[in-house]
Structures are given as C-alpha cells and as structure tokens.
C-alpha cells in the first residue's frame, strides 16, 4: 500500500517535471544578448594585499587615498570610514587631524542649533558629497553614485573590477569585442551614458574620472601618476576601505593553522595509540 502510494506521488512530481521539461526542450534557446557578447571579465590586477601572505603597501594606499580625495570624493561617499582609520595608512596623529580638518562635515551651531558645517575631527566619518539620495540623483543624471566603502567586496573580482572599470572606457564607434564584432548601433549608450565593456550593461553613467597623466600630483619618490597607476592605487585603497582588518586576518591565520596542524597530528598519534590493540587483524 505504502509502495503504491509513494509511486503515485512520485509519478505526480515526475509527470509535472516531464511536462515542464518537454515544454522547455521544445522552446529551448540558449540565452543571448548583446551584453553577454560585449561584457568583459575584469583585467588581471595584482596587489600586494593579495594572497595568503598579503600585506598592504601603505605608500600605495596613501596614493590611492589621494586619488579618492581629489577625484572620487566629488561624487562618491566613503561613509563607513572614519578619519581616525587613516592612521592605518601610516599617517601620524597630526596628519590625520590635518586631513580631517580639510573636510567639511555636517554640524550644528552650538549657539543657535542651526545646521551648518564645520571642519572635520579625527572621529568624524568621511562626509557625503550629497545631502541625500535625491540630491545625488539630481546632480548625476538620475544615477546615484554608489558609496565606495565596500565597493571591492560588493562586486565580483572587486579590486580588478574597479581598476578595469576606471581604465576600460572605450569609444563605442570603434570598439570591437574579442570576436572582432562591432557594437550594434542600437546598443550605443544614450547621450548621458558612457560605453564601458567592464560594466554589466555596458552603459555607465559615470564619465571617465581619470583622464590624464598627472591629474593627481603624487609626492616625491612615487611612481608616475599615469591613469593606469592612479586606477591601481585607488583600487588598492578601496581594498583597504572594504576590509581594514584584512592584514590582521591573514596574519592571525598562520599561527592558528600552524597550531591546529600540530594539535591534529598529536591527536592522530593519540588516536593510533588508543586504537593500537583494536586494529589488528588476526
């Protein structure tokens, strides 16, 4: 009885699936879209923070911060990062204070209670460039510039994606994909858009932010501020903003794994020891 019942239930589900399958096979069509044809995987990017022994290159982080401050911060917030956090980039207390002072953060007039702005202090978070989403939308052709704090964790291949996007703008009229195909005219970005094959729908609202060598003036002894170099540096900086504890995590990992290996080997020997009399075959 149980057997017949179960077979009936089984037939119900399998019949339903078979029906879906037949309809599916009849209409079978591999997905196809211009986005799929033209969307490119991010370029390779190697950062010193990569890998199990990865460490931040503090000079690079400072350069990346400079790029953020002078270019990106015009439109993009960094709301999860406080000025005090910048000490991890190798700035001393006075430098952190000076950086904070350079930013105007929202404040309240202590005498009148009116909303105003004041120079930042170390415990302040990076201020948002727009008062709210509506203002951000209005100033940017209806596209809100996303917050950058977690950007490299919020996208597949995070830092490589940021780097590719910044250096990947192309002219839709002359661009050819890997198969040598030109972009169909109807897929050209609208007047307010910008063609970028590293962006999922190929049409990015952000105009190319890094356009010329020396757009950001790096200090003595730094590499030449080419567009490529600035893009790398800001990608590295955003790895840090997304996970300031990355270095500590990796550094903690090794002793933990080392200890576990040691303890597991001891445990294995003890296990062999305990079972010594039970494992013998006659």
């Amino acid at each position: 009885m149980a057997r017949i019942l179960s077979i009936l239930v089984g037939l119900f589900f399998t019949a339903g699936l078979t029906w879906s399958l037949l309809v599916g096979l009849f209409n079978f069509e591999m997905p196809h879209s211009v986005e799929k044809d033209f969307h490119k995987h991010p370029k390779e990017l190697h950062l010193s923070s990569d890998g199990a022994f990865g460490k931040f290159d503090r000079q690079q982080l400072q350069r990346g911060f400079q790029v953020y401050k002078e270019v990106c911060s015009a439109c993009h917030s960094l709301r999860l990062v406080a000025f005090r956090d910048l000490a991890a980039l190798g700035y001393n207390e006075a430098e952190v204070k000076a950086i904070a002072k350079g930013f105007q953060v929202p404040g309240i007039d202590p005498a009148t209670g009116e909303v105003n702005s004041r120079p930042g202090i170390a415990t302040d978070y990076f201020p948002k460039p727009f008062a709210n989403d509506i203002a951000a939308r209005a100033a940017n052709n209806n596209a809100i510039p996303p917050d950058l704090s977690l950007m490299t964790k919020a996208r597949h291949d995070g830092p490589a994606y940021v780097y590719s996007l910044l250096t990947g703008y192309a002219d839709p009229a002359t661009y050819k994909n890997e198969q040598g195909k030109a972009l169909p005219k109807e897929n050209y970005p609208p007047a307010t858009g910008h063609f970028n094959p590293y962006f999922a729908n190929l049409n990015l609202a952000m105009a190319p932010p890094l356009t010329s060598e020396g757009q950001v003036q790096y200090g003595e002894g730094s590499p030449k501020p080419t567009v490529d170099q600035m893009a790398r540096d800001v990608a590295a900086f955003l790895v840090w903003t997304a996970e300031p504890k990355l270095e500590k995590r990796k550094q903690t990992g090794w002793p933990v794994l080392g200890f576990l290996l040691f303890a597991t080997i001891l445990g294995f020997l003890a296990f062999k020891n305990v079972w010594a009399d039970k494992k013998k075959k006659a």
Partner: peptide
Amino acid sequence: PYFIAKDGWTLGVFLFVFCAVLFFAPN
C-alpha cells in the same frame, strides 16, 4: 576512549579546513 580519540583528531582536521577558509577566503 576509542571514539573520543577518533572524533577528536578528525575535529582537528575539520577545524584546520574551516580556519583555512575563515582566515584566507572568508567571502
């Protein structure tokens, strides 16, 4: 002690793999 010993050392193996992911590929 037999299965405490066996479960114990396999727990070590498990923790090793777990921590490898936790510290080096947590996302």
